[in-house]
Design a protein around this nucleic acid. Sequence first.
DNA 1: GGGCCCGTCCTCCATAAGGTCGAGGACAGT
DNA 2: ACTGTCCTCGACCTTATGGAGGACGGGCCC
Lengths: 209, 209
Amino acid sequence: MSDDITIRVLLADDHPVVREGLCAMLESADGISVVGQASSGEEAVALAARLSPDIVLLDLRMGGMDGVEATGHVLRGSPGSKVVIVTTYESDADILRAVEAGASGYLLKGSSRQELINAVQSAARGETVLTPSLAPKLFRARAVETPPLSERETEVLRLVSQGLTNAEIGRRLFIGEATVKTHLLRAFRKLDVSDRTSAVITALERGLL
Amino acid sequence: MSDDITIRVLLADDHPVVREGLCAMLESADGISVVGQASSGEEAVALAARLSPDIVLLDLRMGGMDGVEATGHVLRGSPGSKVVIVTTYESDADILRAVEAGASGYLLKGSSRQELINAVQSAARGETVLTPSLAPKLFRARAVETPPLSERETEVLRLVSQGLTNAEIGRRLFIGEATVKTHLLRAFRKLDVSDRTSAVITALERGLL
DNA sequence: GGGCCCGTCCTCCATAAGGTCGAGGACAGT
DNA sequence: ACTGTCCTCGACCTTATGGAGGACGGGCCC
């Protein structure tokens, strides 16, 4: 038997090429219909509220509002919709936040047509689907979950990333060098590193700067 | 009047979604026909040699061989083909290298269907096309052109980026710490910085690691 | 042969950075 | 009023780093 109703999908991605590709892949499946396309998070939220689609396919990285934020807004504005995230990178700390925001699926852009279609259908049935290669990363990410950096720590780290010395940072922020070192040491602990270079790199990797 | 011959295009991108999107966009135009798809640089080179397409659309970032390398190989293996690069990021130092390798066009994945079609048609006529927003970046990039890092310098810098100390790097590479410092200092000069943290960051920005 | 770059190594030195301990004040939540 | 977190600063110590100088052999190119 075929599905009783057609799954209505809204696409959101800032790259026309990707929208076109997702659209072509989904339309080729029976029982899936793309009812709208958005090129930004804001647009996606507005369209979702108006169309109440079954599934909203969201890119994690878009101009303006990012995918995580958009996930929350879409779900609030259209409670019947499920959100499936499509992302290019596996290393996104945002994935975790997207889960917490209520997304029901995570796909890589490297996924095949069949994986994409399966994911949409599963999500429509209320299941949560993860790209196979993504699942382990999720747990790893959870394992190394980072205690949040304080505002000051982030600020200091950002200046470190611009190549300033501790003394320069102190002058820049009107605080003593001792204070700068304190902030940095605490940031090191939180990031589980022991030098400024690693700190900056892991902070960048985790999208903390 | 319509073109006398159909433009034969080969697509290469490691994301099925993107391939599908490019394919759908191009096939919708008269006089353009997608004759092959590749999911890696190696595959693109092999297919180009076999199919001798008019245009090869190459993603700049693919698993294995990157777009720059692939550009050179494609042009050597299929001298009649033109290479057009499709990239997601504007900030790629690789764009410059791709020009030097002989690419005839550069597009962002954010380009519209019409821009894409125009670019393919222009390239087929022998013109070189740049996404408008890309052109200024190209010149800026040329302005800050970096003297190339030697192999050893790159290697040392890569280990620095992993948080190793000079002594650790020396042990890892079976060379003295003094040598490590020499390589680093030379890299600093080339990158116009004066500390390891800035060096790693600017090297990352320029795609040198 | 004479440059020139690369990779390797050395010494000496000043300073920056990392680590430890302690401590006071501001402010929010309970 | 108490707790916790954050920001602030100090003293003191060890180690790492950056900078200057020189040195030597090996390629490579003209």
